[in-house]
C-alpha cells in the first residue's frame, strides 16, 4: 500500500512498488488526462510534476513517488502558471488532436515557473522532450511567450 498525494489530495493505492505512476493515475485512480505515448520517456505525453518538477510518469515508479507531491493536468489549472499556460493555449488555438498537449502544458507550466520570461533557447531545452505529431510547435512556442507576457 502506497500513499500518493495527487493534486493536493492523499490517495491510498494497493499496487506493486515498480508500477509506473502513469498507470496508477490512469487505471487505478481513473485520472485519464495523463497520457500514454511511448512508455520509454521519449515523447513526454505522460509528463506530471513531482514536487514541482516535470517528470515522465511512464518511468516514475509509485515507490519513488510516494510521499511526494504529484500534480497532473487535472490539477495544474489551480496554479497561476498552469492557468496562464492553459489560457494561452486556448487563445492561440495551439491544439489539434490534443493528445500530447496535456504533457506539453505540464512541461510549459514548469518552464515558466522556473523561468518567468523564457527565451527561445529556454523553450527548446524545456520542451524538446515533448513530441507533437500534429506539428503544433510554432504555436506552442508562441503560446509560451504569450503566457509569460500575460
Amino acid at each position: 500500500m502506497f500513499e500518493l498525494t495527487v493534486n493536493g489530495t492523499s490517495r491510498q493505492v494497493d499496487v506493486p512498488a515498480d508500477m509506473p505512476v502513469l498507470w496508477v493515475l490512469r487505471d487505478v485512480l481513473a485520472m485519464t488526462g495523463t497520457k500514454f505515448g511511448c512508455g520509454i520517456a521519449q515523447c513526454g505525453a505522460c509528463t506530471v510534476h513531482l514536487d514541482g518538477n516535470p517528470v515522465r510518469s511512464c518511468l516514475l515508479t509509485v515507490g519513488d513517488a510516494a510521499g511526494k507531491q504529484i500534480t497532473t493536468i487535472e490539477g495544474v489549472g489551480a496554479t497561476p502558471e498552469g492557468a496562464k499556460i492553459q489560457k494561452a493555449w486556448l487563445d492561440l488555438e495551439v491544439m489539434q488532436c490534443g493528445y500530447c498537449q496535456c504533457g506539453q502544458i505540464m512541461s510549459a507550466t514548469a518552464l515558466i515557473k522556473a523561468k518567468p520570461t523564457p527565451t527561445d533557447t529556454d523553450i527548446d531545452e524545456a520542451m524538446s522532450g515533448n513530441i507533437c505529431r500534429c506539428g503544433t510547435y510554432v504555436r506552442i512556442r508562441a503560446a509560451i511567450h504569450a503566457a509569460a507576457a500575460a
Binding site: M31, T32, G33, T34, K35, F36, T72, I73, E74, G77, Q86, W89, L90, E93, M95, G98, Y99, Q101, C102, I105
Partner: peptide
C-alpha cells in the same frame, strides 16, 4: 474550436 476547451485540461476522452 469547439473541442479545445476539453483538450486543455485533460477532460476530453479519447478512445484510450
Amino acid at each position: 474550436r469547439i473541442d479545445t476547451p476539453a483538450k486543455v485540461n485533460g477532460s476530453l476522452r479519447f478512445g484510450i
